[in-house]
Amino acid sequence: MTDQVDDDLDSAAVTGSSAVGRRGGFPKLRMQAADTGPDFGPFIEAMRTLQDLAVSVDAPDEVYGAALSHAQAMIDLLDPYRAPEGESPAGRVLDLPGRGSLLMVPWQVEYFGPDLVRSRGSFRRYHVGGNNAVHGGVIPLLFDEMFGFTSFMAKRSVSRTGYLHVNYRKVTPIDTPLVVESRVDRIEGRKTFVVAELRDEDGTLLADAEGLMIKLLPGQP
Rank of each mutant, 00 (worst) to 15 (best):
V55C: 05
F147E: 01
E201I: 14
L216C: 11
T15H: 11
V179G: 07
Q32A: 15
M1L: 09
V171Q: 15
F193K: 07
N132L: 05
F143D: 05
E188K: 06
L50M: 11
V20K: 10
H165M: 12
P60F: 07
D79N: 14
L198W: 00
M104Y: 12
V109Y: 06
F143M: 09
G98Q: 11
E210M: 13
W107L: 08
L116G: 04
R186E: 14
S157H: 12
S159F: 02
P114L: 11
A71L: 15
L142C: 07
R48N: 07
D8G: 08
V128N: 03
V158W: 15
H127Y: 08
V55G: 00
G211Q: 05
H165G: 11
V55E: 10
G91I: 03
R23I: 05
M213I: 03
D3Q: 14
A90F: 11
A66C: 02
D6R: 14
N132H: 12
D8M: 10
V180C: 11
T49F: 08
M153E: 10
P60L: 05
A209I: 11
V5W: 09
T150G: 06
F26I: 07
R199E: 07
S151C: 13
G113M: 06
V128W: 00
R125Q: 11
S157R: 14
P42D: 03
D7P: 00
D208N: 12
K170D: 09
G129M: 00
R186I: 04
K28P: 05
K191M: 09
P38V: 07
A71M: 14
D115N: 09
A209D: 03
P80R: 01
D175V: 01
G37Q: 07
G21M: 10
R124M: 08
V109T: 12
R118C: 08
V14G: 08
T176F: 04
D52W: 00
M74P: 04
R48T: 12
T204R: 15
L205C: 05
A46V: 03
L116C: 11
S69F: 01
D76P: 07
R22A: 13
D200G: 04
P42A: 09
D95M: 03
G211R: 02
N131M: 13
Q220Y: 01
Y64A: 10
V166I: 14
F112Q: 04
